[in-house]
Every structure is written in structure tokens, then in C-alpha cells.
Design a protein around this nucleic acid. Sequence first.
RNA 1: GCCGAAGUGGUGGAAUUGGUAGACACGCUAUCUUGAGGGGGUAGUGACCACAAGUCGUGCGAGUUCGAGUCUCGCCUUCGGCACCA
Length: 827
Amino acid sequence: MENPSSERYEFKAVEAKWQRRWAEGKPYKVVADPARKKYYVLEMFPYPSGRIHMGHVRNYTIGDVIARYKRMRGYNVIHPMGWDAFGLPAENAALKRGIHPAAWTYDNIAYMRDQLKAMGLSYDWDRELATCDPSYYRWEQLIFLKMLEKGLVYRKETTVNWCESCATVLAREQVIDGCCWRCDQPVVPRTMHGWFFRITDYAEELLADLDKLTGWPEKVVTMQRNWIGRSQGLACDFPVEGSDRKITIFTTRPDTIYGVTFMSLAVEHPLVEQLSAGTEHAAAVREFVRTTLIEKQRKSLDEELDKKGVFTGAYCLNPFTGERVPVFAANFVLMEYGTGAVMAVPAHDQRDFDFANAYNLPIREVIRPAAQHPTEKLSQAYTEPGVLVDSGPFTGMDSEAAKEAIIKHAAANGFGQAQVTYRLRDWGISRQRYWGAPIPVIHCAKCGIVPVPEEQLPVVLPGTDRPDGSHAPLHQQTDFIATTCPTCAGAARRETDTMDTFVESSWYFARYTCPDCATSPLDPEQARYWLPVDQYIGGVEHAILHLLYSRFFTKVLRDLGYLNIDEPFRNLLTQGMVIKDGAKMSKSKGNVVDPNELIERYGADTVRLFSLFAAPPERDLEWNAQGVDGASRFLNKVYRLVAPVAQAGNTSPALPPLESLNEPSRALHRKTHQTIKKVTDSIESNFHFNTAISAVMELVNLASALVADGKEVAPAVLRACLDTTLLLLFPMVPHFCEELREMIGHDRSLDQSSWPDFDAEAAREEAITVIVQVNGKVRARLEVPADTGDDELQDLALADERIQKTLAGKEPKKIIVVQRKLVNIVV
RNA sequence: GCCGAAGUGGUGGAAUUGGUAGACACGCUAUCUUGAGGGGGUAGUGACCACAAGUCGUGCGAGUUCGAGUCUCGCCUUCGGCACCA
């Protein structure tokens, strides 16, 4: 006979067995069913980089628990998985190893898919998609064409952020501290043509709808709000003296307009050249522009440049005062924001103040704090609100009121109007890369830019089925480039840019609702049933880029008639990082833990359990090898509790009346129901699986102790406790629970079972501990029946020996009784 | 500089939302299980004190309250985001 204490749960065979059943029986395959309530759980899909890491394990485990839990709650749950498969690493790997990016990508997908299956994740694999597959990107190309038709796509020449090492353009969002987000090399400016999505057309809605995202972390909403960066102000024309030109400025401080003492233009501003041309200043200006551009390029991360500028030789006129002020080109004015021209009010803007001091320009105070009179020399700009002084007819007004009045005045006189400006800029999507979705347009010498006709889609990436290393950027693919113009049938050439990979990930969640639809990007009926995503889960690193683009795409697809929703993700959970030795796990730090090794050694359930138990999902998870042992020990403890019951036979006796049970049985039954409540609450409130697990541990500890002590627990009560334990743990450790459930004789699997019901009556405590405080300090504890009344509690408290001693005869001033909780005696 | 989040034992983290601070777990100590092995059981484990009694304890300082980890105000520290945005 084997020593029961050494008996262990054989995870390897068990996990293989259930994974086989899931693959064959497809219990997680779903179809739309309008009669049932749907629930869409989605984890951010992975880039097929090679193998999964602990961050993936954590992300997908969280999603899987939610999916399984919601199924037990009766929802029709869609839980898909796919691959964000275009991108630079495939090209780099291909170059390095002389294989085709497609081969590298699909090999990785095959490997990683097996890894995910080994984790026991409950995906509907029939919905799997890979964005590099023409059956996916052809619809993206169609969406592009529809957007082009609607004027939401345009081509322009711009200065772009160019990464030398990746040899591609980067979106502004992909430039981090002046370096490439991917390779960390410095980014340089470069002028070229590129395609843009008019995301700024949606800036207002993207901002306004943030208020609808009540299921998102506040932090993410705030980050998006700041990123969109709406400011309200005045656009105003300052005529150039002696010329019919004018300088248009944007300001959020129209109330300071009487304090303008000069004008600053960005060095890139076209007027800089024009105004100085042919004057004695021309050479100096040109030199200044040249050096500033170089300096800006080199600008290191957090350093602000010293304020520098050069007089253009021109003056312009303040339309409010007619006053003549000098026009400068300045290094601190951004061409990309507002109009690239700034009215300078040194008294009320620190940058202008610094500049004025450096160049000996006048500083004129026009706003004062209400109380303060005297005119001592300003030591720095006063930027707070206040009362206007020396401001013509607006003098004496409050600065907030003056903003409005001044805008009105400008509008009435035709030299300005209210204007809203955004920090957000249009999304540059052109990439000079091979491994991406081709942009479906044709350049014709005669007809210009011609969209590829819909029936010619997809524009297939050349060589995808020829893994022979022909993966050069598209502009070297002469076969691909040469085509005929759809309009005039003359010789023409294809666009060689591919789309930013963020385009693929901006709508994949919608495509999951109809991955095989062969007639349209989306099947409106499927989309209407399944969308929006009810719960989205992923890392906070996507708080701006991916989530903003997806929101934008959702609105575009709505306006194109494919969707009927405004927002893609109802609830968002941003999971924390996996940390080891105080740092995020990464290859470069050499602190990675390989999920494969863990699963091999402990089994998927143990790994899942640990990652859920060690921290709540939104917090960083500190990796701890001993914690994994602990998770493994717990499962074995449950196993040892269940195994004897399995051997005792498979009858499931009915629960006798509670009054007939002995105290240990009643206690276990009570604890069982308390645990159902605790676990349910933990999951429902904020997916705090760590506390859910600890509640089950308490239940298991109690049951184990009762059994070990030889207490006569009614078989029906123990049985119900174990059934419940397996139901509650199932979403977290599915193979384990299914196996044990089968062992104790159930023929219906947990996949077909409902979440246990909580019985408040059964959970109610018979006796409670009431604390007795004197002046707020705990002095005694009373064990009393749960229904003891207030008066009786007070009497019991006062009669308590220790309380008597503490009071030492002092007369209570006040006694506070909180039912079922405490008595506080104030003396 | 601006915005946001977080500070609780040796460690990860609990605390019914104003009512027993430290659940659950890891680690550690002692002990039992024929000696060891990532096994099991029992007891202990916030600090001070030789125990007990007691005192002190949730980043710091005030405040509200019978009662504060929780609420208010003011600081400090750490982390994240944005950053010459006019």
C-alpha cells in the first residue's frame, strides 16, 4: 500500500488527456445565438516572435479564467486567438538566416500555438487568424480604399521620423525619447511622400467618447486625453508691415494679447525665408535656420535648448493696438503645433520671458493677481489667471471673461476667430518595408494616383509562397511594381509602401466575429451580435497607440457601415508586468523564466495557479520560484482530500437536514457557502483571483483538518464541499478539476456545469466574535450567538471581567454598540 | 514642469469600504515522520519586554471621529506617461 501522504497528482498524463478531449470535442467553439447573451473576452494577440514568455502566460491565463467563468455563468462566450504577424523582426530574422519572412512567421505560429494549447487555454481555434495571410489583409486593403474614397486617407510630403537602422519611417507615437521604439537607435528627420489616415477628423469624438469608457482604468483614459491634447483659443492674423502678408498665430491666452512685444516663428515656417529674403538679415537668418535644424535633430532626450532666435528684419502689427512688433525666428517654436507662429507675451509666458531677457526685448505686464497693485519688476512670467491691466477696453476684466470677449472682438472685426487645436496628428501609415500589407494604389504618369479596383484585391505581397529569401523591400521587386493603370491601361507602377502593422491590430477583434467571411471585411450580422468586446486584457504599454488606433478604426468602420458600435472595448484590464529580481523579465537582462520548462516540471495548472495567486492582475507580478512550489503543494493537498472519496464509491448522498448534523459538519457546510460568496465576489468585483484562491485554500484547509482530526463529517457535506471546490477552481486549473471531478464519479464535465449557487442561509454564522473596546482600544472579545441584541451585548460587555478591570470603577460616558461587531465604552 | 498611480511584517499580498491590522501563501525556527532528497504532520513567526501584563505599530505631520490602513489637509519617496503644445 502506498503511503497516502506521498501520493501525488500525475499532471502530465492528466493534462494531455484533457487537452486531447478539448481538441477533439471542441467545447469552446461558439456560434452566434441571438437567444443567448454573449460575452466577448479578448487578450491582445501576440506577435509570433518565436516562443511565448511569462507575460503571455499571465495575460492569457487571466483571459482564460474569465472566459471559463462566464461560460459557467451561462454566457455564450467568444474567446478567440490569432497572430499579429506582420512586422520587422520577421524581416530581420529572415535576413539573418536566409529564409523567407513568411516561413519564419508560420513556423513560429505553429510552435506558439502548441504552447498555448499546452496551457489549456479555452480558445475557439476555428476563429484563429494571422494578419499576414492574404485572406486577412485583402480586407484591410479594401477598408483602405473605402477610406481613400471618403477622404480619410491622403498622401503628402512631410518631414518624417526616419530610423536608419530599421530603414523605415516611424509614426510619432513610435518615437520614444528621440529613439526608435523598436531598436532604440536615434531617429532622424527626412523628407518624403507618405500615406496618412485622417485620425484628426475624429479627434473630437475620440476625446468626447472617453467619457463612455467607464470600464477602463482611469490612467489609460487620462493618457489618451493628454495625447489628444485639445486646447481652445484664438487664431489671429497679425499683418506684416509694408506687405500684404500676414502672420496667423494660435494662442490659448487671448487675454494677454495687449502684452505682445514681439512675434516668434518656427524656423521651418515659410515666412521666415520670405520675410528676410533680400534684406540685410537674410544671411544671418539662413544661418540660424540651418544650425537650429541641426541642433533640433541632435536634441538629446530631456534637455531643453537655450532660447535662441534671430530678427527677420520684418515687423508686424498687433491688430488690437496697431502696435508694431519685431518678428523673430526662434528655436523653441514648434512648426507642428498650432500655426508655427506664436505671439510673444514675455510677462505671462516663461519661454517668452526667457527669450525677451536674452534679447533685451520689452516685457509688458497686462495681467495682475486681483489683490496686488504695485509694479515691481517681474522675476518670472506670471501665468496664473488675474485681472487685466493696460488692455484698452478690456482693462479691469477677469482674465477668463476677457478670453471670450477678446475672441469675440477679433471675430467681429474679421482678423481672428475661436479655434480648437489638437496635439494629436494624422497617423502616418507608410512603411518602406517588405513584410507588411501592400498599400493598394497604382501610380500612373497620366492619371496620377489610382486606387486598385476592388475586384483586383488582394494586392498580394510577392513571394509569400516562395520561401527562397526573396524578401527585399518592395521597391526592388520589379515584377511587383510593373503594372497597368486601371483607368488608362497604360504602363504604371504599384505603390511600394506597406502599411504600419498597427493597422492590422486596429480591427482584428472585429474580424474574429467572421474570420472566414469571403465577401466582406465584416459580416454585419455577426458583428452586431458579438461586438463590442466585453473584456479586453493586455499590457499598459498599449495604452495609447493600439487602443487609440482601434478606437479610431471602430468609428471609421461604423461610418463605412460595417459596424454599429462607437467603441470597441467596453472593459479594459491592463495587467501588470512580470518582474524578476526587481526588473521586467527580458532577454537583455537575462532574467527570463521559460514557460516551457515550468509547464514541463510543474504542469500548466500549477503555473496558471501561481500566476493568478501571486498578485492581483493589474499589479506587477514578482516572480518567485518557491511560490510555484506552493501552488503545486496546494493542488496536491486538494488531490489528497479528494482521492479517498473517489475510492469510497461514487454515491452522492442527499444533504440531511442541517439540524441533524454535528457541529463539524455544520461548520464545513457553512464554510463551503461562505467560500462560494467570497470567490464569486472576488471575481465579479475586479477579477481579484488572488483572494478567490485564498478563500478556496481556507476551505480546503478546514476540510483537511476535519478529516485529519478524525471528525465525523457527514459524507454528503464533505462531498458537497469537494464538488464546490472543484467548480470554484475550474476556471483557474481546468485539467486538474476535470480529472478530479471524473474521479469522484460525475459524468457531466465541468465545461457543461454551472457556477455554484450561494445560499445565504447556509453561510450564516451561528456564533460570532464581538470585540469590546475601551476608548477605542480592544480590551476583550465576546463569543455570542449571532442574534444577540444590542442591549444584551452592552450588558455582557460591561459584565466582562477584563473590562471591569480596565474600567477600574470609572463611569462610562458613552457606549457605542455596533450590531454583530463591537461595543466601544468611552470613559 | 504637467498628469496619473502606489507606499502595510523578512517576502508576495489581505482587510466585509470607518469597526479585531497582517487573511492566504512564501520564507524562517523548533519538532515528529527510518537519514537526505523541491514529501507530509504539529507548534511558532509584526516590533519592544525574560514571560505575563502592557506599550508601539499601515511612508511623514496635522485634523475629523467613540473609533482611521481606510476620510480631510499639507509634505516625502518610488514608479509610469507627457513634455519648449504658446
